[in-house]
Simulated assay, not measured.
Amino acid sequence: MKNKLGYLYDTYFMNVYHHDEMTNIHQVQLEALIQIMIMAVLLLAIIIYKKQQMTLGTVMLVYLLLSYMINPLMKISVFIAMHDELQIIFERYKEMLPEKRDRKKKIKKIKSIELKHVSFSYGYTRPLFDHFQLKIERSLFIQGKTGSGKSTLLKLIMNQLQPTKGEIVINGINLQELDLNSYYSHIKYLNKTPVFYKESLRTNMIFDRLFLEDKMIELLHYFMLDDLVNGLDLKLDEQGGFLSSGQGQLVMIIRALLSEPDVLILDEAFSNIDQERLQLLINYLNFQKIIVIIVSHQINMMNCQFDCVIIDSGKIVGEEDYGNRFST
């Protein structure tokens, strides 16, 4: 938006410069034309006067009337130039207005996410996904090798990437038909890199929703982060300040849980969390009435509460294709 505004301002001032230049040329031409017309009319009046068909007073009256026409004609010329300039301003203003969009559908609760024959490729490379199908109605653990398409799958679900073919359906509605603000208010995505604001730890977790403070403190105690309760007023920087990498990831997860999403996506979001707190997290998520989608290389996180999908080269594979990774 900053670059677009800069471009519009530069274009506007350049157009104003060109119009001022054209206005000056037009005014010179108009004044020259008026002077020529005055000379022609005076010459004609003198000829008529010499033929004694017009008095000298009438000749002077004609000259005065013609001279009075100069100023109005100049103003008309300026008005025409201003009209063009205002037209340019209006056109630039219209470019800054948001495009008229079709009314999007809103959702109250995400109950299912389905990928129907989804195909996707980066540029002109071989498709990473080709007619990929997956329906998510309960918590899911996604396993796969590096580069198998796990993170790309999550980005497609988050609408950060759009499929080249097929569709992503939320509660039976195409994702492209949904109001994204409504969609994002029900789904949260976290990766391994926490995002912080230059505010206090309390503000980073609950913002201005002070009614969530008791719940926040309860979760901090549950995840054995009692030291942070006394540091809620300490200010963080964009890297998390005094928080360790594991604490930073837990703080982001707590912040997401406090917003009570219908779907929580964790893309290696607990890679730096110790095993004890990780087990507490899994136990907590098991009792939440939300869909949790986890991508992690930590296979020991598997439990009977989660469905499991193994992805290899953009396809869902079975144990016989991938190896006996999960005995369950």
Rank of each mutant, 00 (worst) to 15 (best):
Y284T: 00
P98M: 09
F326D: 05
M54C: 05
H83S: 14
H221Y: 12
S77R: 03
N174K: 13
F211E: 12
Q143K: 15
I76C: 01
I311H: 00
E320K: 05
N303D: 03
D307G: 00
R126F: 12
V317C: 08
K75A: 09
E260H: 13
M60F: 11
F223D: 00
E276Y: 15
V62T: 04
Q279C: 12
G318S: 12
S148R: 08
Y124D: 15
I253H: 02
H297Q: 09
H83V: 06
M302F: 05
M96Y: 08
S296N: 06
L258C: 04
P72W: 02
N204F: 01
K106W: 05
S67C: 13
G231D: 12
F270M: 05
K108R: 10
E213K: 13
N230C: 07
K51Y: 15
C308A: 10
G144F: 04
L220D: 00
Q27D: 12
V118H: 03
L153M: 03
N191L: 04
N191V: 04
I168Y: 04
Q288K: 09
F223E: 00
K289A: 02
K315T: 02
M14K: 14
M69E: 09
L64S: 10
Y189V: 01
G240R: 05
F207G: 13
K315C: 03
T164L: 11
E85N: 14
L30W: 08
I316A: 06
K75I: 06
F196A: 01
K106A: 08
M22I: 06
I88F: 11
Q29K: 15
Q239C: 10
P127F: 04
I88V: 11
E319Q: 05
I36P: 13
N3V: 09
F306N: 00
G240H: 09
G6C: 11
D262S: 13
F270S: 03
K150G: 03
K215M: 08
G147T: 01
I46F: 07
Q52F: 14
H186V: 01
Q275M: 09
F132E: 12
